Amino acid sequence: MFKFRLERVLQLRISEENQLKLELASVRARMRILQEEINSAQQMLYKMSQEVLQDPSRGLSGNEIHQWRSYVEATENYIRKKLQDLKNLKSEEDRLKEKYLEMRKDRKILENLKAKQFKRYAFEQDRLNRLYMDEIALRKYARR
């Protein structure tokens, strides 16, 4: 019976790789959410600007202009913060991706080693079976 001595190490590598894959998926999901938040904030800012610019005849009081400018600045700060968060998540994604590729490479090495050892084991078993069959044939032939 074939027994790979490093089977536990291989299983550990596989589970670590799967865990890292889940982490990477989580980071990518958070990146999508952040991107959607940024897009909605930018659209809201654009709509507000269009509303102010579309009705210039209405005239805005100084207080309304000040409130509008404060809101625009707050929204721009919010967008900048979200872009920074997105940048941080992108660097985290790159780091995790690099680590994942390295772990996948290690796992492939172990799987190739296991395949080679199994091939060697199968060859040895086949050789032993042929020797056994030859011995049986020689004994039968020697009896006659």
Score class of each variant (00 low, 15 high):
residue 62 G to C: 05
residue 140 K to A: 13
residue 57 S to W: 04
residue 139 R to C: 14
residue 50 Q to T: 09
residue 53 L to W: 08
residue 109 I to G: 01
residue 51 E to F: 09
residue 45 L to C: 05
residue 70 S to C: 05
residue 20 L to T: 01
residue 56 P to E: 00
residue 18 N to L: 02
residue 15 S to M: 04
residue 18 N to E: 15
residue 58 R to P: 02
residue 15 S to E: 15
residue 49 S to R: 11
residue 141 Y to M: 09
residue 103 M to W: 07
residue 102 E to S: 07
residue 37 E to R: 13
residue 47 K to G: 05
residue 128 L to P: 09
residue 11 Q to C: 01
residue 74 A to V: 07
residue 90 K to V: 08
residue 90 K to T: 14
residue 31 M to L: 08
residue 19 Q to A: 11
residue 76 E to Q: 10
residue 52 V to M: 13
residue 116 K to D: 13
residue 40 S to A: 10
residue 51 E to L: 03
residue 19 Q to N: 14
residue 36 E to N: 14
residue 38 I to H: 00
residue 29 A to P: 03
residue 104 R to D: 08
residue 19 Q to D: 14
residue 33 I to V: 13
residue 31 M to N: 01
residue 123 F to E: 15
residue 126 D to F: 04
residue 5 R to G: 14
residue 53 L to S: 15
residue 26 S to K: 06
residue 121 Y to L: 02
residue 52 V to D: 11
residue 24 L to S: 00
residue 118 F to R: 10
residue 73 E to V: 05
residue 85 D to I: 08
residue 54 Q to K: 11
residue 82 K to Y: 03
residue 119 K to N: 10
residue 79 I to D: 00
residue 133 M to C: 07
residue 125 Q to N: 09
residue 127 R to C: 01
residue 70 S to H: 05
residue 134 D to Q: 12
residue 72 V to S: 03
residue 57 S to P: 02
residue 59 G to D: 00
residue 18 N to D: 09
residue 14 I to E: 15
residue 123 F to I: 09
residue 96 L to I: 03
residue 20 L to N: 02
residue 23 E to T: 11
residue 34 L to T: 10
residue 85 D to W: 08
residue 17 E to M: 04
residue 126 D to Y: 08
residue 117 Q to M: 12
residue 132 Y to Q: 12
residue 7 E to Y: 02
residue 41 A to K: 10
residue 4 F to D: 01
residue 94 D to Y: 07
residue 108 K to T: 13
residue 13 R to L: 09
residue 78 Y to M: 13
residue 84 Q to L: 12
residue 78 Y to A: 11
residue 70 S to Q: 12
residue 3 K to Q: 14
residue 134 D to G: 04
residue 7 E to P: 01
residue 85 D to T: 10
residue 119 K to Q: 13
residue 111 E to S: 05
residue 3 K to E: 15
residue 86 L to I: 04
residue 90 K to S: 13
residue 100 Y to G: 00
residue 23 E to S: 13
residue 66 H to W: 06
residue 75 T to M: 14
residue 141 Y to I: 07
residue 33 I to L: 14
residue 138 L to E: 13
residue 53 L to K: 15
residue 34 L to F: 04
residue 72 V to T: 11
residue 29 A to G: 05
residue 104 R to I: 01
residue 140 K to L: 15
residue 101 L to W: 02
residue 90 K to L: 11
residue 17 E to I: 02
residue 25 A to F: 09
residue 26 S to M: 11
residue 83 L to G: 05
residue 18 N to I: 00
residue 68 W to E: 06
residue 84 Q to H: 07
residue 15 S to N: 07
residue 45 L to Y: 04
residue 143 R to C: 06
residue 6 L to C: 06
residue 19 Q to H: 12
residue 92 E to P: 03
residue 55 D to M: 03
residue 42 Q to T: 04
